[in-house]
């Protein structure tokens, strides 16, 4: 009896030792916690790390690159097995990535991209394709409006990668349809406040959205602001005007149910299950990976 218990305990201890010996330590430097999407993304990364038995060291850069560089250097000093970076900005990475390479720690990018002279400085980027999201939104709208549609566009923060790529993807699709055009476009800075202000101005400048068939917003928050602005002007969003946006945050799910929004392209926040297997496989047997592994996007409509 006692022997069994001892053996059991010994087994448990050895199992514990083994699991710590094999558990991978991964550092994750996140941009910050803005909006609805990113906190959900951070929470999922931390949750699903446990499922994969990963010891995740999480660092929030609060939107500052210098904070992020410091976090990455700290990960290098700690000798983690791999580093995940969701870059704040695209430039200024060569030096610190070189340091990681010299320490033989592989770098994985998630979410946004980086511009480096030597692409071997990181293994791969695992993220959604903003361009594809724009294309999906455009394709849905083309089908729904049968290829005839005057569109108002609420852009994200001017110059940001999602704003540029979602616009390009969207325009690439609607460019195929001669009767589809963007008649007004402005930046709502990815915020509800910004979306509402811009839509209020559009409502005035287009005589109550006369002849406008759709509103395309680069994220849901701006679209939610636009929905409020339209309701306050006595318009029926979702019925008078087709509403398509990107992100699929909880509040737009409710708007879809209420018929005030028509479609939202999901930017998945539960992406740990796409990211961790790639990293763990790589750590087990390092090999050349494509520079970009796309996480599939999904379009949700009211029904």
């Amino acid at each position: 009896m006692l022997k069994n218990a001892l053996a059991g305990a010994a087994f448990a201890v050895s199992a514990l030792v083994c699991s710590t010996a094999f558990a991978q330590t991964i550092g994750f430097s996140q941009v910050g916690s803005e909006g609805d999407w990113r906190p959900a993304f951070s929470a999922n990364m931390q949750e699903s790390a446990k499922d994969y038995g990963i010891d995740l060291k999480f660092a929030n850069a609060q939107g500052k690159q210098e904070e992020q560089l410091r976090a990455v250097r700290a990960f290098i000093a700690q000798g983690v097995d791999a580093i995940i970076i969701a870059p704040v900005v695209v430039t200024g990475w060569d030096q610190v990535l070189q340091e990681a390479k010299e320490a033989e720690i592989p770098i994985f990018l998630v979410d946004r991209d980086v511009e480096v002279k030597d692409p071997s400085l990181y293994v791969t980027r695992i993220s959604a394709d903003f361009n594809l999201e724009g294309k999906l939104a455009g394709a849905w709208l083309a089908a729904e409006s049968k290829g005839t549609c005057k569109i108002v566009e609420l852009q994200g923060t001017t110059g940001s990668a999602p704003a540029i790529e979602r616009k390009k993807g969207f325009e690439a699709v609607i460019g195929q349809f001669p009767a589809m055009e963007i008649v007004a476009t402005q930046s709502g800075d990815f915020t509800t406040e910004g979306g509402k202000k811009v839509m209020e101005a559009f409502i005035k400048s287009t005589n109550n959205l006369d002849g406008i068939c759709a509103s395309f917003a680069h994220n849901d928050n701006m679209q939610l602001g636009a929905i409020q602005a339209m309701k306050e002007a006595g318009l029926k969003p979702g019925k008078d005007v087709l509403m398509v946006s990107v992100d699929y945050v909880p509040a737009i799910v409710e708007a879809l149910k209420a018929g005030e929004a028509n479609a939202s392209v999901e930017l998945r926040s539960a992406v740990g299950k796409f990211i961790y297997p790639v990293i763990l496989d790589y750590l087990k047997s390092p090999q050349e990976l494509p520079k970009w592994i796309v996480i599939p996007s999904d379009l949700h409509t009211a029904n």
Partner: peptide
């Protein structure tokens, strides 16, 4: 006005 709290922005 925006029916939401968005402390970051």
């Amino acid at each position: 006005d925006t029916h939401t709290s968005d402390p970051v922005s």
